[in-house]
Amino acid sequence: MNIRNICLGALALSMVSGVSFAGALDSPDNMAPFFTDSSMKTMKPKAEFKAAWDSMTKDKQEAMMKECQDAAMSKPYAEFCANLQALGGAN
């Protein structure tokens, strides 16, 4: 009985903590405005990219910049983060 409770507790904890690892760059709602297609493979041109960035709230901009500054978090989004850095961040 104790082993079962421990396993269920561990499973519940892993499910809850898994949601907290999803960041701003993992959210399709945050990323979609920067891409031309629904598969999010082709980024918009620089002018449209900047317009999408400028239309975001400061909170979202800060969260995205923070993740882009973390090497481990930004690796799958290298091209996107490079475009943000070219914009000068939240400017």
Rank of each mutant, 00 (worst) to 15 (best):
I3E: 15
R4W: 14
R4C: 07
N5T: 07
C7I: 15
L8D: 03
G9V: 06
G9H: 03
L11I: 15
L11N: 04
S14W: 00
M15F: 07
M15T: 04
V16T: 08
V16M: 06
S17R: 00
S17A: 04
S17D: 02
G18R: 01
G18I: 06
G18Y: 05
S20V: 08
S20A: 14
S20L: 12
S20K: 02
F21I: 10
G23W: 12
G23M: 11
A24L: 10
L25G: 06
S27I: 01
S27F: 03
D29P: 13
A32G: 03
P33D: 13
P33K: 05
F34V: 13
F35H: 11
T36G: 12
D37S: 05
D37P: 02
D37W: 09
S38I: 15
M40T: 09
T42M: 03
M43I: 09
M43A: 08
M43H: 06
K44D: 01
P45A: 12
P45T: 03
P45F: 01
K46Q: 06
K46D: 12
E48Y: 00
E48G: 13
F49S: 11
F49T: 11
K50W: 04
K50S: 13
K50F: 03
W53T: 03
D54A: 05
D54K: 05
D54C: 05
S55Q: 06
S55P: 07
S55R: 04
M56Q: 10
T57N: 11
T57I: 02
T57Y: 02
K58T: 15
D59N: 02
K60C: 02
K60R: 05
K60N: 09
A63T: 01
A63I: 00
M64Y: 00
M64F: 01
M64Q: 08
M65Y: 03
M65V: 15
K66V: 09
K66C: 09
E67L: 09
E67G: 12
Q69A: 15
Q69K: 03
D70P: 01
A71F: 07
A71S: 13
A71L: 09
M73L: 14
M73R: 06
S74C: 15
S74Y: 12
S74Q: 14
K75F: 14
P76C: 12
P76I: 04
P76G: 08
A78H: 11
A78Y: 06
E79H: 01
E79W: 00
C81G: 08
N83R: 08
L84R: 02
L84S: 00
Q85R: 03
A86S: 08
L87A: 08
G89L: 02
G89K: 01
A90K: 04
